[in-house]
């Protein structure tokens, strides 16, 4: 069960400049992540959901320091400022945070054997002193993820199925005994039957090693199953956060409701009322002023469009936060004011 906080993210921003012309003049910003805050406890899984392009993956990769430089905000990981670290210090921190990828085909170097792929981290950090020790450690890791430590270790990635490759990726991620793993849609590319196996593997590893996951996905069923808490992202912002059960029982934000109503029910006699969203998601280059969701929202009022005084974050219950005026009806109280938009962003 979740313990102390190991990762605290405040107002994380990651913008990508759009450059044009011969001299690379910056003509705009893609605001992929625009003010995201959350905490993650030891042994906890935080699900991060939202439609394609909403910034889920960017948020996760920025936190892993894979998309430097960060545009704004702060993150404290294991008591240290994550974005202030450089060189050797950052390299040591990397031991504690890892990533599992969506695409089991592109995430493994086709020219390396399983032994070198899984054992690379051990070598980089000098955890093992010789080849024999590395082989033993890799065999142990393969056993942990359900692969054959003898037959599979000398093979190349192309000789495995998608699910097996994902297991190799997981073995690589746990090789250094990290505290935190960002799972970037780890099952989206797999068959449903394989998905369950991988989810179960991730859960049992979490229990055994007390791992914390940031579980990025768009499949709400999977997220509900694995997550303790869920955060819903829309256009670079977290619009609603709650305990997994609470969110699915009592969604407040219209976007969350629309997402949840899109989950198919495995019973042809049940007719659910779908909240069909109209319109495309707006572009993160120039998001709508105020609440980014207002052009697609049927409850939108004038104050939802106010850029100088954006919709604040309300708390409607223990750990249930939502950035929507509808929270007022549920008795929500304001816990965080959002900064005025288009204000200069400190770097």
């Amino acid at each position: 069960m979740p313990g102390e906080t190991i990762l605290e993210v405040k107002d994380l921003r990651k913008h990508f400049p759009i450059r044009r012309g011969l001299f690379g003049r910056t003509v705009g910003q893609v605001k992929a992540v625009d003010g995201v805050s959350f905490t993650l406890a030891r042994g906890e899984t935080l699900g991060l959901v939202g439609e394609s392009g909403c910034g889920k993956t960017t948020a996760g990769r920025t936190l892993l320091r894979l998309l430097d430089p960060v545009t704004g905000g702060s993150a404290t990981f294991l008591g240290k400022d994550l974005f202030a670290q450089r060189g050797e210090e950052l390299r040591r921190t990397r031991k504690h945070m890892q990533i599992i990828f969506q695409d089991p085909y592109g995430s493994l170097n086709p020219r390396m054997t399983v032994e070198s792929i899984v054992g690379e981290a051990l070598q980089i950090h000098g955890v093992v002193s010789d080849r024999k020790e590395r082989r033993e450690r890799v065999q142990g890791l393969l056993r942990e993820v359900g692969l054959d430590p003898v037959r599979h270790i000398t093979r190349y990635p192309h000789e495995f199925s998608g699910g097996q490759r994902q297991r190799i990726g997981i073995a690589r991620a746990i090789a250094l005994d990290p505290e935190f793993i960002m799972c970037d849609e780890p099952v989206s590319a797999l068959d449903v039957s394989i998905q369950a196996q991988i989810i179960n593997l991730l859960q049992s590893l979490q229990e055994r090693k007390n791992l914390s996951y940031l579980f990025v996905a768009h499949d709400l069923k999977v997220v509900e199953h694995i997550s303790h808490r869920v955060a819903v992202m829309y256009l670079g912002e977290i619009v609603e956060t709650a305990g997994s059960g609470e969110l699915y029982r009592n969604p407040i934000h219209p976007y969350t409701k629309a997402l949840l109503s899109a989950i198919p029910v495995a019973d042809p006699t049940v007719t659910t009322r779908r909240e069909i969203l109209t319109g495309e998601p707006p572009t993160p280059i120039n998001p709508p002023a105020g609440c980014h969701f207002h052009p697609r929202c049927r409850f939108a009022e004038d104050r939802c469009r106010d850029a100088a005084n954006p919709v604040p974050v309300y708390e409607v219950g223990e750990g249930h936060r939502v950035q929507c005026i509808l929270a007022e009806k549920e008795g929500g109280r304001i816990v965080e004011h959002r900064p005025p938009q288009n204000a200069p962003v400190e770097v």
Binding site: L66, Q98, D103, L108, N109, I124
Partner: peptide, 24 residues
């Protein structure tokens, strides 16, 4: 992704270039 993975494991530029990119 495998280059990203190597970076996340703490591999330096030289290692990423010579072990992961150039062989491919």
């Amino acid at each position: 992704d495998y280059a990203v993975a190597a970076r996340s494991l703490g591999a330096g530029d030289g290692r990423i270039l010579f072990r992961h990119l150039l062989p491919n």
